[in-house]
Amino acid sequence: MSADMSATTLDHPLKIRVRELYEEYFACLEAQDLTAWPSFFTEDAVYLVQSDQSHRSGLLIGDIYCDGIAMFRDRAAATANTSVHARQTIRHFPGALKLAARKGDLVSSTMSYLAVRSVTDEAPTFFSVGRSIDEIAVNGDRLRFARRTVIYDHDRIDNSLVFPL
């Protein structure tokens, strides 16, 4: 459990449920289950992956941008059906979780991560490391991301980013 003081103002079960959301999300990514990936987002969710440099500059374009559930489904379908890439496994290691105060049906959350990629015939690499700033909707049948911004610490991606983070 995080020692963060603001989290102590939240009910404990919620923090456990948020951590479970991340664990299930990362398990989905590790399984490369692209069909299930959109189900972690609300209908009008906004998802952006960009570098910390771009994030600090407030830039609108990053590497991946989805605005509305249709775009999640399109990216999932395109990656699963049309993308050509080397076989690879990506492990996601969640780090420190920080919850901010709940506003209505949304909880703001920050989670750091490390993603390690193993590509066929190559040694594993620390492929991406950074944090996500998320807004999690808590009013549905399960927790879902209403907004997810993945901000990686490095300036560039090594070759390609085939799967979402």
Partner: peptide, 28 residues
């Protein structure tokens, strides 16, 4: 228009729905 440009950037770059194919192939 800005929204459209943001959406269409998904085709390009390291996570590009089109460009990924090129970077993967060129490596080999």
């Amino acid at each position: 228009m800005t929204l459209r440009r943001r959406k269409q950037a998904n085709l390009f770059g390291p996570a590009g729905l089109v460009s990924v194919d090129d970077t993967e192939v060129l490596k080999f």
